[in-house]
Nucleic acid binder design. Structure first.
Lengths: 143, 143
DNA sequence: ATCTTATTGAAAATGATTTTCAATTTCAGT
DNA sequence: ACTGAAATTGAAAATCATTTTCAATAAGAT
């Protein structure tokens, strides 16, 4: 079974486990998001999803995005051009690597910034709780 | 001379050096931004600036922000709550440390993530050009 | 198959940002 | 200081993204 199909079914199950009904609009939005390798904004999702389900309303895209984000199944991606796009979330402590050419994203883990955090805490007097790390570059195909 | 005054004068000079006129609306917006310890969004800047110059228009705030960003004097700050706020930019390679309590921000430098980048490049096949790193925590006053 | 209730799409409302444009202000040249 | 050309301004209108409202529909328990 392809990875995207598995993810899609996991999301369906997660919705049901949280007493959300499995409706056609939701399924369609999930199909689009669960199989995308790049972050998509509401309008892009709308356009793609309409190919599969033409009577879908844009409002349902917004509502489904809100739900999926609450369930931690997707996450908003911050980029210089804007912060309105979403991509499938990764469980665990992972960071994004974004291709500046095609937008393709991959997750990486194992960032060891503990010593950096410690030094910054000492110098600033702040107590650090969280960090955001994101890399930008070019994927193999775009190099 | 306080640091903020110096920064303000630098910005004035930078505008002039780039053939922008030194107008009252621009000066007022700069006064607000150059002396703020926390990131401010357009409306917040508008409200603060109006205390000094009541006939200021919101449009001029937007236009001045655009200009200052182009000149690399300010930068947009990305936060979980939104990405519409701006703060004075730092020259050189610096990252932000944001207080989750009061919003106060400080810059830090010397992040050494070279080895991390190298590993990720090998594993992903991407060529990494840039990185975003931002820390969140609590400042001394908010702890 | 029926019933209850969540969910939907369309339309209206809201909020943020951009564009348009005539009036004003800056500043270079006197 | 005075003048004039050109940049800049604020108000209003236009645009764009998102949210709210609401009657109609569809999901899923019985």
């Amino acid at each position: 079974m392809p990875k995207e199909t598995k993810r899609r079914d996991t999301w369906f199950a997660c919705l049901q486990a949280n007493d959300y009904r499995l409706t056609k609009p939701r399924k369609t939005v999930i199909n689009v998001l669960a199989s995308s390798r790049q972050a998509l904004n509401p309008t892009e999702i709308f356009d793609l999803a309409r190919e599969e389900y033409p009577s879908l309303g844009l409002v349902s895209v917004y509502r489904t995005l809100e739900t999926l984000e609450e369930l931690n199944l997707i996450q908003r991606v911050h980029q210089p051009e804007g912060c309105k796009s979403y991509i499938a979330a990764f469980s665990g402590h992972q960071h994004l690597l974004v291709c500046e050419g095609c937008g393709r994203m991959v997750y990486f883990d194992g960032d060891d910034i503990a010593s950096l955090v410690e030094r910054v805490e000492q110098e600033s007097g702040y107590q650090v709780n969280e960090h955001w790390l994101q890399l930008f570059g070019r994927c193999q195909a775009c190099q």
